[in-house]
Every structure is written in structure tokens, then in C-alpha cells.
Simulated assay, not measured.
Amino acid sequence: MPGLKTVHFLSDGPTYQYWNRKMFYLMGSYLRRKLEADCNQWHYNEARHGKGPPDGVGGSLKRTADRLVATGTDIPNFNRLTEELEKHSTGIKILVLDPTIIPIVQAKFPYIIPSFKDTMQAH
């Protein structure tokens, strides 16, 4: 992605994310280099309150899938679901992660990832 300056990650704030060393490593070390970004920013919304773009996009996709099934569209598998959502969701780009990449990325993690102390206070 030429010219990419900042990658913004948006999520709610469940406590387990704050202590997830692998996520911190993935964002701070791996993804920043992979995307060739100058900066990563992780934005937390209050947990379980349905705020922000991630919840809006997720809700829109769920309503679209519900409407498709209710009007007779057969969705027998994940691939068909993503195809139908792509076709019927204006302005939303669905990126499907190739599951074979997960063990490749996991193999790049160091055996021991140090803890990120006082993560809850950093929030």
C-alpha cells in the first residue's frame, strides 16, 4: 500500500484484549512492517455498547444476511455468504482471510513475548 501513513484498528475493549501479548506483538512488529505503515493506532470503544464503525458495519452485514435468507436466498456455506454480502452491501468491502496464512504468521512470533506492563493504565 504505497504511501500508507497510519493504520487504525478499531475494537471494543474487552479486558482480555488488554493482556493479549500476541495482539500487541502482531500490531507493533509484524503488521506495521508488513503494511509498511509509519504508525499503528489502536482505538478502543467502551465494551458491549455497539458504538462506532465496526459495530455499524457488522450490524449492516448481519441485517443484510438476515434479509437475504428471509427472501429465499440459499446460503449453504461461508463462501456463498461472502459472495452474497459483497453483492448486496454497498460501500462495504469484505476481505476473507486465507486460513493457511495463520500458521505462517504464528511461526513468526517469538517463543516468548514479554508482557506489556500496566496495559489497563495505558488505556
Rank of each mutant, 00 (worst) to 15 (best):
A37Y: 00
C39Y: 14
C39F: 11
C39W: 13
C39H: 13
N40F: 04
Q41W: 04
Q41F: 12
Q41P: 02
W42C: 02
W42H: 00
H43S: 00
H43A: 06
Y44C: 05
N45S: 14
N45D: 15
E46I: 12
E46L: 13
E46R: 11
A47N: 09
A47R: 06
A47H: 07
H49L: 12
H49C: 13
H49P: 07
K51G: 12
K51D: 14
G52S: 06
G52Q: 01
G52H: 00
P54Q: 04
P54W: 05
D55G: 06
G56W: 12
G56V: 09
G56L: 06
G56T: 12
G58K: 03
G59W: 04
G59R: 03
G59Y: 09
G59Q: 04
S60E: 08
S60K: 12
L61Y: 10
L61R: 05
K62L: 15
R63G: 14
R63K: 15
R63P: 06
R63Q: 14
T64W: 04
T64L: 08
T64G: 07
A65F: 08
A65P: 04
R67G: 15
R67S: 14
R67F: 02
R67K: 07
L68Y: 10
L68S: 09
L68M: 08
V69N: 08
V69Y: 05
A70W: 12
T71M: 13
G72Q: 03
T73P: 02
D74L: 10
D74A: 14
I75C: 10
P76L: 05
P76N: 01
P76I: 04
N77S: 09
F78T: 11
F78M: 10
R80S: 00
L81A: 08
L81E: 01
T82F: 07
T82L: 13
E83N: 08
E83T: 13
E83F: 09
E84Q: 08
L85H: 00
L85R: 07
L85S: 07
E86S: 11
E86D: 10
E86P: 00
E86F: 07
E86V: 09
K87E: 03
H88V: 05
H88M: 01
S89L: 01
S89K: 07
T90R: 10
I92A: 00
I94L: 10
L95C: 11
L97C: 10
D98H: 03
